[in-house]
């Protein structure tokens, strides 16, 4: 057997292992579904999330890091598209709940704004670049076989423990807007949607310009 054949053999093996894994994952899904459909949903949405991230090489770290590091904005533009589409989808869902008089879902993701946002964002940004992966990227790469990201995960866990114990302090000090800002409360539903999409569009154009500038 020459090297090429060995390689092909390896491919076939991995593919077969993948099919076995798929069958096992679906069996777990059926078990969870019988237990409670919502639990099966969390399971399957996680699998889909990981699958999409791996297959499309979608990386939030690269999106925020590469414009300055390599000048490439391809991933950045991908993330901007995701932000725009999710904004439209979420706003449609939220508006539907609003006009039908139901509780708007996901409003606990409207976080307070304060020094915790600034410091948290900055050190998260530093951490993800030096570790080469954020929370989702790290989980995805563990699945791809990167042992190093098990170390990142351990560090993440210890950092979380420290942060949890300081959370009370951060939420009582230097908190500027305690209840957060839901943009439609400020600009109206349509106004907020237009403003946000315009900002995303502007960033998209900036990303294209930035990459063109690098090529010159």
């Amino acid at each position: 057997m020459n090297l090429g054949d060995q390689k092909k053999d390896q491919f076939a093996k991995q593919f077969s292992a993948g099919l076995v894994l798929f069958a096992m994952l679906m069996m777990v899904a059926i078990f969870l579904f019988q237990y409670a459909p919502i639990i099966a949903f969390f399971w399957i949405s996680g699998l889909a999330f990981g699958y999409i991230l791996q297959r499309s090489r979608f990386c939030f770290v690269a999106a925020l890091r590469d414009p300055a590091l390599t000048g490439s904005t391809a991933v950045t533009r991908g993330v901007l598209v995701a932000l725009a589409l999710t904004t439209i989808g979420f706003t449609a869902v939220k508006y539907f709940y609003h006009v039908t008089g139901q509780t708007i879902p996901g409003q606990n993701y409207i976080q307070s704004i304060g020094m915790n946002t600034v410091v948290g964002g900055t050190i998260f940004g530093i951490g993800m670049v030096i570790a080469g992966g954020c929370a989702s990227g790290m989980l995805m790469r563990i699945g791809e076989g990167f042992k190093i990201h098990l170390i990142t995960l351990s560090g993440f866990f210890i950092g979380t423990m420290l942060g949890n114990n300081h959370l009370e302090w951060w939420s009582n000090h230097l908190l500027w807007i305690k209840d957060g800002v839901f943009l439609p409360d400020l600009f109206g539903w349509v106004g907020a949607l237009i403003i946000q999409l315009m900002v995303i569009g502007l960033l998209y154009r900036l990303a294209i310009k930035w990459e063109e500038k690098q090529e010159l």
Binding site: I123, F124, A131, H149, G155, F156, I158, G159, G163
Partner: peptide
Amino acid sequence: AAALGGLLMGYGSSIA
């Protein structure tokens, strides 16, 4: 780098 990066992300994400 991985351990330190993880630590920073853990702390950052839990306070923010």
